[in-house]
Nucleic acid binder design. Structure first.
Lengths: 348, 348
DNA sequence: GTTTAGCACTCGACGTAACTGAGTGCTAAC
DNA sequence: GTTAGCACTCAGTTACGTCGAGTGCTAAAC
């Protein structure tokens, strides 16, 4: 069942060739391109074996072979190890990264960088706000029964939420609440704060119960409000690949991009460890398209909080180039978000 | 040079037929469809005249005729007058409009409504913030030299802007400034406030000069920050029309949508009066596509401020249906934004 | 003078058939 | 185990004929 050394070489060569040309790879082509010194007939035999094992398939009887998802999976998991560390050096990358003072701008910039350097689409999901460290809250009255709560996190993310109330608290009450929250909870994340307060409320019931509850709920975000945001840059890069040349495929791709929310939850759910992970083709079935791959990594944002970024491209993606790129950008962005001053000085 | 009554009828019939079928219209087809009681030969003669005048053209010698932009222009300007008032009644429309407490959600909802009812794409541009009436400002310190200013308008729009400072004002100073601005300027628009303050500063120079200046600049918005936002809903509706069936056309459309900023400035610039206006084909050259039309109207938002909304579709658009729709949605939205309570009660 | 019928002509769309070439599988020889 | 040779397959392209929608023009009818 396992694949021998030479078979692996041929599989790798087939995949690389297909990634480059997007056309089925024939045995003759491989003899020319690869340095294996084998005749077409030999390669044909091997390819027939690989097809039987499910790594290659033929679009039609008299065509060359095309790698299956299983092949890409194997390639990424087993054939790519040694190449990966040889990224093009962080230094060069850092030069092209121009972070802004505004965190969301910086994230968008990271997305743009990913798209630019990968030639695919760059994606960045903001960290879940509720897992970030709280810095400050401020209230603004919008009307008799409406309040605007502005939450600022230590890392510079800002969210405002409208709060509907039954009672209208006085300006003083609001200031009091804000001050209490600001002085007591700075540096903790919203999850923790919420837990503490819920506990506390149970013990000493005081006047602000309901309002406080609403404020905390608002901070957590309601299920209808997405918990973060998604930046996708360079969508049009993907259009130029031949796999989306037909109108139908293109329309499907278009619809995928429209469903921003779908894509965001997919990306958010799919990753909760360290390092780069690759999701190939139908592993992203939720996208509604089965010839897209995602190369994702978490980036650090402060001590406890993570967001996700990566590259979206055709299954036939240059994984060997993209994986180290995603890794590096994630590190770079994490570095900047966690120690803005240092990176700032370096970049400015 | 002018077109006689019967010629107009034939032109109208041709346009209507082409809008419906998207295929070149022949003389025979017209005799069947229209109620003119004329033979194909007669219609051929008239069509030949219309072609000479630039209202029709033939894709190739032995095909039917297709309306030119000039024809659509003429149709919209002169042949559509009587039909327009006969919209499908505001009542029905109002029922399908479900405004939210959040203004931006409401705008997005309006865009969705436009897309849903027109079967094209709905677009909404938010009002320029700087022309809205000021309600309140609040400051949050983000760091040693960073300040967050939150501006709230009377109509419920919220904007926050980061401000970089040389000096760090104390919490007291900030509160003082906020209170001064809030008590003195409520209800005026930012343009006016700025003018007043600039004047005042020239007379009595006081401590906050520079900071105040920065705050005002932030409120106005910098040139790099777009002055508003754009919501486009139902992009995929447009994909299904045969004029975008070819991959190339579709790609161009895609790229148009990517350039959100371009589209927004185009829409913002093109309208500054009352009522519905129509921009046909190459009149929207800035979009990079020349077979799209825009039907736009301003909506009122408070007393002095306007935003723009409308429908984006192929040149071959059902103007007779879309124009009253855009008109009505603009009114409805304006009504809601200006007197939220009244509309709210009616809808809830 | 306007309208209509008739007719020859044009030209894209569609379908069929033949050809080409890239690529395979198999068998036999090295 | 590897390679050379050969027959076979099949998508893609080209060439060609047919079809039909539609036109322009001319001459007759109203």
């Amino acid at each position: 069942m396992e694949i021998t050394g030479r078979d692996q070489d041929i599989l790798r060569a087939t995949i690389l060739c297909y990634i480059k040309t997007a056309t089925p790879v024939g045995s003759r082509t491989l003899t020319k391109i690869s340095e294996l010194g084998l005749s077409p007939a030999t390669i044909r035999n091997v390819m027939a074996d690989l097809e039987e094992l499910g790594y290659l398939e033929q679009p039609h009887a008299s065509a060359g072979r095309v790698p299956t998802e299983k092949a890409y999976r194997f390639y990424v998991d087993h054939l790519l190890g040694p190449t990966l560390s040889a990224g093009e050096g962080d230094g060069l990358l850092a030069l092209r990264f121009t972070p802004s003072e505004d965190v969301t701008d910086t994230l968008q910039e990271a997305s743009r960088l990913l798209s630019l350097l990968s030639h695919y689409a760059g994606v960045v999901v903001t960290p879940r706000f509720s897992s970030q460290r709280f810095k400050r809250v401020e209230f603004v009255r919008l009307g008799e029964r409406q309040l605007l709560a502005i939450f600022v996190s230590e890392d510079g993310f800002i969210q405002h939420r409208r709060i509907e109330m039954d009672d209208a608290p006085s300006a003083n009450q609001l200031r009091q609440i804000a001050e209490e929250l600001n002085s007591r909870f700075r540096g903790q994340d919203l999850h923790a704060i919420r837990a503490t307060l819920v506990e506390e409320m149970r013990e000493h019931k005081h006047r602000y119960d309901q309002l406080m509850q609403q404020i905390l709920d608002a901070a957590q975000g309601s299920p209808t409000q997405p918990p973060g945001d998604l930046y996708v840059e360079g969508k049009t890069n993907i259009l130029d690949f031949p796999e989306f040349a037909e109108a139908e495929k293109m329309k499907a791709l278009f619809k995928t991009f429209e469903e921003k929310y779908m894509m965001m939850t997919l990306i958010e759910k799919s990753l909760d460890g360290d390092g780069v992970r690759v999701f190939i083709g139908s592993e992203n079935a939720a996208l509604g398209v089965n010839n897209l791959s995602l190369v994702l990594a978490n980036y650090r944002c402060g001590e406890h909080s993570y967001g996700t970024l990566g590259v979206l491209g055709p299954t036939r993606m240059e994984y060997d180039r993209v994986i180290p790129l995603v890794d590096q950008v994630a590190r770079l962005l994490g570095e900047f978000l966690t120690h803005p001053a240092r990176t700032d000085r370096a970049a400015g």
